[in-house]
Design a protein around this nucleic acid. Structure first.
Length: 779
RNA sequence: GCCGAGGUGGCGGAAUUGGUAGACGCAGCGGACUUAAAAUCCGCUGGGGAUUUCUCCGUGUCGGUUCGAGUCCGACCCCCGGCACCA
């Protein structure tokens, strides 16, 4: 037996299409947002999960009387569109538009309550002109700059990538191995906000997301110490977090790319050997495959704390991008330096003593990296390393051989992409005036649409050639486009006034709606998108666009959808198509199952059988319509259960425990035996409505169910008059009694002892009483 | 290696502050209805033993705190996620 979900869902989706969802403008504001999708073709179960969670919250909050903003849009620039153009000969515009219309249709078939009047599409000039406008603002503020750097290059995507977009040495999108390339590129100075981004003081974010971001930012406090090269007297600064080990520095190591290297080795007898090593060492290998190797330069440096000469080496494990590109090696107290020193027979000098390692024993077999008392460290001998760090730093700064410094792992965000299907960077290069920003009133720089598949912007002369805005002489446009993560770093602001032509957002409206009260999306964006969006928010605040420090007050990081032990994906061939499920069971069943199968933060294991249970449940609900009776409901035996259910479902929704909320609804239906009074049935329908809006709309009969407020519960009824008291003997369950609510302790204890008297071999030593819960008799 | 989250029946998962472990659903078993099947409805369903309402064991392992521990503390084991020569 199946209820006629096709007709029901079609009917109500048509009604919603015409009526919309959010006409009323009263109550406290609630900005609810789910991560907008890339229009890749069809929605997948991950989308369904994300958007169904959002929809339940939207409908619940609306019923609770909030003024809800719940918009949806499209993250529409990106590489798959270009690949499709090359493979199928369809223009990215057409491909994207078709996908959007298909996916929008799918979202509607799920019964999602979006305010489609606020829809945005990042590839439309009306949207990306503000992308360009923000770029110009960043440029004015010195937050957008160009530099030549060794950058991550994906040979398959034929473009550069930001650091965050390289996973395990491979491209985040196509998994091709990343190579290095030296290019002049545009960067956003995200590092300027590194410190502020370490704290998220607003609302509730999952701990693991905050920790991941913190690790990514990777703040470390230390000191730059100035070594001098002996022959030339040139300064080689090294960064360390362990100044307490400075007396144990027995050699220096430079990154292969270190600028001074060429000069240092020019008169070395084994010059060509060193050169060869450097070229080999420059090739990036993943850390676990890399054997630590190095070569002596023939030169020495002076350790400024004791004027000792230490050899200068070049090693493949020293990174040019972090710190100064040069390190002081303390083999006794750093495992990497230790391995290296052992391999090349370099001296190992212990300067931190500890219980495990005798200070006189020089044949240690590993580095001691912990804290301890300083030895062999001149006037700092006997000091605790924690104190010595400060004392040595103070002293170094005083005599000018070092300066305290904070380093971050976080790098500036490389935003140039050598791709066509993206937002053009609004910059013009003029032989006279150099780098000139496109004037604001000439925005947008429109992406030319009359192109052939695979054609790049630099191949389109009409685009490239232009006039310099300053001197009106012929000039050339920047032909790189922006990383698509730029588009999604501020879209939550555009949703507020999406069609405003004069401003990115109207200030008063932004002040009303921002920040987003609840953001919902996959954990996979914990670093990339969420960090970029926080960065943009802080810049937009400094620009005076908004008054908030953070974009998203609360974050719900939803788990992945799994089948056969792996994330659902086309390449693994384990996808379940939402359309086929809707066709078979209807959208309400799909919505219910995806919420019921797992708590939102956890992984959801797809089970073809499990969905049957939700379908059966909705069929039972449907059949209830024949059991509804017109009669007084306050006296009915279901009156207490429905009130308990209202309380439970309300509490569960407040803490996003959708799976248990649905279980409560199922329990209630299991309670109904022969019939149900209409008043109680209606309350039940209101509770079920956010989860299964179609079937509940149908069963509601009178008017629109969505106009009804969330039902309150009767406090008096919930407090039961007769309650069950657990009786334990020595903490083990031995019986139960029922007693009036709040019956006094002595009376309960008396009854409890009496009820288990045959099991009491000795008289009780102690009786623990927890009001309205249990009695524990201790023998 | 470091950081984070977790380990509960055959399975997905409940147990919100330490107080009836296993709600709800799936799968399974038995029964009703039916000529039969499907659907539906009812009952059982952590393990062992007595077979009736009794009893022992049981939330990764070992120990601790407590009248009482899935929940708190300590040590260890195992999975998952993130970062990984960051000096």
């Amino acid at each position: 037996m199946k209820y006629p979900f096709e007709e029901i869902e079609k009917k109500y989706q048509e009604i919603w299409e015409n009526d919309g969802f959010f006409e009323k403008k009263k109550g406290e504001k609630h900005y609810l947002l789910e991560m907008f999708p890339y229009p890749s073709g069809k929605i997948h179960m991950g989308h369904v999960r994300n958007y169904v969670i959002g929809d339940v919250v939207a409908r619940y909050k609306t019923m609770k009387g909030f003024n809800v903003l719940h918009p949806m849009g499209w993250d529409a620039f990106g590489l798959p569109a270009e690949n499709a153009a090359i493979e199928k000969g369809v223009h990215p515009v057409k491909w994207t538009e078709e996908n959007i219309s298909c996916m929008k249709n799918q979202l509607k078939k799920l019964g999602l309550s979006y305010d489609w009047n606020k829809e945005i599409t990042t590839c439309s000039p009306n949207y990306y002109r503000w992308n360009q406008w923000l770029f110009l603002k960043f440029f004015e503020m010195g937050l957008a700059y160009q530099k030549t750097a060794d950058v991550n290059w994906c040979p398959k995507c034929q473009t550069v990538l930001a650091n965050e977009q390289v996973l395990d040495g491979a491209c985040w999108r196509c998994e091709a191995k990343i190579t290095s390339k030296s290019l002049k590129q545009w960067f956003f100075k995200i590092t300027e906000y590194a410190d502020e981004m370490l704290d998220h003081k607003l609302g509730k974010w999952p701990e693991n997301v905050l920790v991941m971001q913190k690790n990514w930012i990777g703040k470390s406090k230390g000191i730059e110490i100035f070594f001098k090269e002996k022959k030339t007297g040139k300064t080689i600064p090294v960064f360390t977090t362990r100044p307490d080990t400075i007396f144990g520095a027995t050699y220096l190591t430079l990154a292969p790319q270190y600028p001074l290297v060429d000069e240092l080795i020019e008169d070395a007898p084994n010059f060509s050997e060193i050169k060869e090593f450097i070229e080999k060492a420059k090739i990036r290998v993943s850390p676990d495959e890399l054997e630590k190797e190095g070569i002596f330069t023939g030169r020495f440096a002076i350790n400024p704390v004791n004027n000792e000469e230490v050899p200068i080496w070049i090693a493949n494990y020293v990174l040019m991008e972090y710190g100064t590109g040069a390190i002081m090696a303390v083999p006794a107290h750093d495992q990497r330096d230790f391995d290296f020193a052992k391999k090349y027979g370099l001296p190992i000098k212990i300067v931190i003593s500890n219980q495990e390692l005798g200070i006189k024993d020089h044949r240690i077999d590993r580095a001691y990296e912990g804290e301890g008392v300083l030895v062999n460290s001149g006037m700092f001998d006997g000091m605790e390393s924690e104190r010595a760090k400060e004392a040595i730093s103070d002293w170094m700064e005083e005599i000018g051989i070092g300066v305290r410094k904070i380093n971050y792992k976080l790098k500036d965000w490389l935003i140039s992409r050598q791709r066509y299907w993206g937002c053009p960077i609004p910059i013009i290069y003029c032989s006279e005036c150099d780098t000139v920003p496109v004037p604001e009133d000439e925005l947008p720089v429109v992406l030319p649409l009359d192109t052939k598949p695979g054609q790049n912007l630099w191949e389109i002369e009409e685009f490239v050639n232009c006039k310099c805005p300053k001197c009106r002489q012929p000039a050339k446009r920047e032909t790189d486009t922006m990383d698509t993560f730029v588009d999604s770093s501020w879209y939550f602001l555009r949703f507020i006034t999406p069609s405003c032509e004069t401003k990115l957002v109207l200030k008063e409206e932004a002040d009303y709606w921002m920040p987003v009260d609840q953001y919902i999306g996959g954990v996979e964006h914990a670093i990339l998108h969420l960090m970029y969006a926080r960065f943009f928010t802080k810049v937009m605040r400094d620009l005076g666009l908004i008054s908030v420090d953070e974009p998203f007050t609360n974050l719900l990081a939803q788990g992945m959808v799994i089948k056969d032990g792996a994330k659902m994906s086309k390449s693994k061939g384990n996808i379940v198509d939402p359309d086929s499920i809707i066709e078979r069971y209807g959208a309400d069943t799909l919505r219910l199952f995806i919420l019921f199968a797992a708590p939102p933060e956890g992984e959801l294991v797809w089970n073809d059988k499990g969905i049957e249970g939700c379908f059966r449940f909705l069929n039972r609900v449907y059949r209830l319509k024949d059991k509804v009776e017109e009669r007084d409901h306050k006296e009915d035996r279901l009156y207490i259960p429905i009130n308990k259910t209202i309380k439970a479902v309300t509490d569960d929704l407040e803490r996003f425990s959708f799976n248990t909320a649905i279980a409560r609804l199922m329990e209630f239906v299991n309670e109904i035996k022969n019939n149900i009074p209409k008043g109680i049935f209606e309350k039940f329908l209101l509770l079920l409505f956010p989860f299964a809006p179609h079937i509940t709309s149908f069963l509601w009969e009178k008017g629109k169910i969505s106009d009804s407020p969330w039902p309150p519960y009767d406090e008096d009824v919930i407090k039961e008059k007769e309650i069950t008291i657990i009786i334990q003997i020595n903490g083990k369950l031995r019986g139960k009694i029922t007693a009036p609510y709040d019956l006094e302790a002595e009376e309960i204890k008396k009854r409890a002892v009496l009820s288990v008297s045959d099991k009491l071999k000795t008289s009780p030593k102690n009786i623990i009483f927890v009001p309205n819960k249990l009695v524990n008799i201790v023998l």
